[in-house]
């Protein structure tokens, strides 16, 4: 099966390998037609299909069987067929359904962005900004949980969790001896460790990076600063455990946070170890490569020295 299959997404044709998902095919095209994904993570096996933000309409199943699929499908878990025609932003039905999903995700999510460490690099913020409504119709109390420390470096703020299961997959696949998972059912389900067991593993810090919201945060960075006041810089070091390729977040001269490098979809390029993440907070520990490329639309770029656009020149005479 080396033949390429042809798929049309929002009237753009692309040829991809068989077995590619619709979402990945869309990412190959790029641009606005890429469905948002809150739970899918290309580096984690079995992830996806849960958040339902990537729903798309398949208006033609394949060249052989041109019937449309009866329901909207999760593009992250549906593989393409030859001759498949997919509608994402060209389908009002999809846009409406996505609005609904965003509303559902937000009804139990606290509006504490002003004090949340994830603000500025939060996928849910981006998602609700792009696809959500400006108002919530939910008028009831939100579910609340106590904050928990899982391990001495990670804080779990369950109120903010959208149950994407990414951290569970990370803990399962990247670390050995997984101790944390989902407890409970329905909207009472929570991420947790069995009887508050601490997570003690060299790669456990990656759950912070995969978390799309501020549910899992770095205790060494909590309340230190807003991300848009910090400057991300790519750096590397020789590490025995991991690749050592990281992003350093500078505030002035000080490294206040170390994270893995993320691609344009917010996914880690490589998982890094806890020593790199939590313990090496001096510039002398690292070899600096250069400024991290930040999407111009991201709020992080507002303080970024490299890609910043020049302010428009205003002709004062017209006033």
């Amino acid at each position: 099966m080396s033949e390429k299959v042809k798929v049309t997404i929002d009237n753009i044709e692309i040829e991809v390998d068989p077995g590619t998902t619709i979402l990945n095919a869309a990412r190959m095209i790029g641009g606005d037609i890429v469905p948002p994904a809150m739970c899918y993570y290309s580096k984690l096996k079995g992830s996806g299909g849960k958040c339902r933000t990537c729903l798309v309409k398949v208006s033609q199943g394949s060249a052989k069987d041109p019937r449309p699929m009866p329901k909207l499908v999760a593009s992250c878990r549906t593989t393409v067929m030859d001759g498949m025609v997919v509608q994402n932003i060209t389908s009002p039905e999809v846009i409406e359904a996505r609005k609904g999903v965003v509303e559902f995700l937000l009804i139990n999510h606290p509006l504490d962005c002003p004090v949340c460490d994830q603000a500025g690099e939060c996928h849910l913020q981006d998602l609700s900004f792009e696809h959500g409504k400006d108002q919530s119709r939910y008028e009831f109390k939100r579910r609340t949980f106590e904050m928990v420390d899982i391990g001495d470096k990670i804080k779990l703020h369950m109120n903010r969790c959208i149950l994407c299961y990414r951290c569970v997959f990370t803990a399962d696949q990247i670390t050995d001896n997984r101790v944390h998972g989902i407890l409970g059912r329905g909207d009472a389900s929570e991420i947790g460790t069995y009887i508050s067991k601490a997570i003690d593993n060299d790669f456990s810090g990656n759950v912070i990076d995969v978390c799309p919201v501020g549910a899992l945060t770095d205790k060494t960075f909590r309340f230190k600063n807003r991300v848009w006041f910090t400057k991300p810089v790519n750096a590397h070091c020789d590490c025995e455990k991991c690749s050592g390729k990281v992003t350093l977040w500078y505030k002035g001269e000080e490294v206040i946070r170390v994270t893995g490098r993320k691609d344009q979809y917010g996914e880690l390029e490589e998982f890094i170890c806890n020593t790199c993440r939590f313990d090496k907070k001096k510039t002398s520990d690292w070899t600096i490569e250069g400024p991290t490329k930040v999407d111009r639309r991201s709020v992080v770029s507002s303080n970024h020295y490299d890609e910043k656009e020049l302010l428009p020149v205003i002709d004062r005479k017209i006033f």
Partner: peptide, 21 residues
């Protein structure tokens, strides 16, 4: 249905509780 939703996917997890309320 609110009580029995597994909580895996968001429309059902959040929507059933909302409807119940």
């Amino acid at each position: 249905y609110h009580h029995e939703s597994c909580g895996q996917c968001s429309p059902c997890r959040e929507g059933t509780g909302w409807m119940e309320k």
